[in-house]
Amino acid sequence: MKLCDKNVSQIGFGTWKMGGGFWTPDYSRDSHYVEILKYVINNGINLIDTAEMYGGGHAEELVGKAIKGFDRENIFIITKVWPNHLRYEDVIKSAKESLRRLDTKYIDLYLIHWPNPSIPLNETIRAMENLVDQGIVRCIGVSNFDVKLLSEAITLTRKYEIVANEIEYSVNNKSAESDIIPFCEKNNIKIIAYSPLARGNVKNNKILEEIGRKYGKTAIQVALNYLIKRSIPIPKASTKDHVDEILGSLGWSLSDEDYERIRKL
Rank of each mutant, 00 (worst) to 15 (best):
M1V: 13
K2G: 03
I11L: 09
T15H: 03
T15I: 10
M18D: 03
G20Y: 03
G21I: 11
W23M: 15
W23E: 13
R29P: 00
S31P: 09
H32E: 14
Y33M: 10
E35R: 13
Y39V: 04
N42C: 07
L47Y: 01
E52C: 07
E52K: 01
Y54C: 03
G57P: 05
H58N: 15
A59W: 05
E61G: 01
L62G: 05
V63I: 03
K68Y: 06
D71Q: 06
I78D: 06
T79F: 00
T79L: 10
V81Y: 01
P83H: 13
V91Y: 09
V91D: 04
A95N: 00
E97G: 09
R101I: 00
D103H: 05
K105T: 10
I107L: 12
L109R: 07
I112M: 13
P115V: 10
P120C: 12
N122D: 15
I125Y: 12
I125P: 09
I125E: 06
N130R: 15
V137C: 03
V137R: 06
I140R: 09
I140Q: 11
G141R: 08
V147S: 03
V147T: 14
L149M: 15
L150N: 02
E152R: 12
I154K: 09
L156G: 06
T157L: 13
R158Q: 15
K159S: 08
I167K: 01
S170H: 10
S170E: 05
N173G: 05
S175L: 14
S178H: 11
D179R: 12
I180V: 14
P182Q: 07
N187P: 08
N188Q: 09
K190A: 11
I192R: 03
Y194R: 11
Y194K: 04
L197V: 08
K206F: 05
I207D: 00
E209A: 09
K214I: 06
K217R: 13
A219E: 10
V222E: 02
A223E: 04
I228W: 05
I228Y: 05
S231K: 00
T239A: 04
H242P: 01
D244S: 12
E245R: 07
L247N: 04
S249N: 01
L250S: 00
S253D: 09
D258R: 07
I262V: 12
R263M: 04
L265S: 01
